[in-house]
């Protein structure tokens, strides 16, 4: 490959070969309000866990949409379920349910082992 002197970081790349949409589909089915997310970041701005760590709930939402489930279990475990995010969400998304579904789903689909 020709080197242009810069390259794309792995972490910035969406690898659709590894994409796993099972969890996203389940969440969209059980919590349809999640469809409305516009990635505004309001949830992250107010997040309690976000004030203590680099936890980013909006990023998790994005990862989910891209089917990137690797590392999701560890990330989502930082949330304290305090509920601030759903109160500020301009799209009235029931985020606490999304979070609970992720917590349960990563175990169900065993996403960390990536047995797709």
């Amino acid at each position: 490959m020709v080197s242009f002197g810069f390259e794309l970081l792995d972490s910035k790349r969406i690898d659709y070969n590894k994409s796993d949409g099972r969890l996203l589909n389940e969440i969209l089915e059980k919590e349809p309000s999640f469809k409305r997310c516009i990635s505004c970041g309001g949830c992250t701005a107010t997040c309690t866990a976000g004030s203590l760590t680099n936890f980013n709930i909006r990023k998790i939402n994005l990862m989910l949409r891209h089917g990137q489930t690797e590392g999701l279990e560890k990330e989502i475990s930082k949330c304290m379920l305090c509920g601030k995010c759903f109160l500020v969400c301009p799209r009235d998304i029931n985020l606490r349910n999304v979070i609970m579904l992720i917590k349960k789903g990563v175990l169900k689909y065993n996403t960390e082992k990536k047995k797709i």
Binding site: T46, T48, L52, T53, S77, K78, C79, M80, C82, G83, K84, L87, V88, K103, K104, V106, L107
Partner: peptide
């Protein structure tokens, strides 16, 4: 039961001395 968080990131530490601790809570921050 099967998916509880550990919150390893929480730090302890010495608190300032006071007569009253005021804990406002997440909702009051909103």
């Amino acid at each position: 039961k099967t998916y509880n968080s550990k919150y390893d990131y929480l730090k302890g530490g010495i608190s300032p001395q006071a007569d009253v601790v005021y804990f406002t809570g997440c909702m009051t921050h909103l």
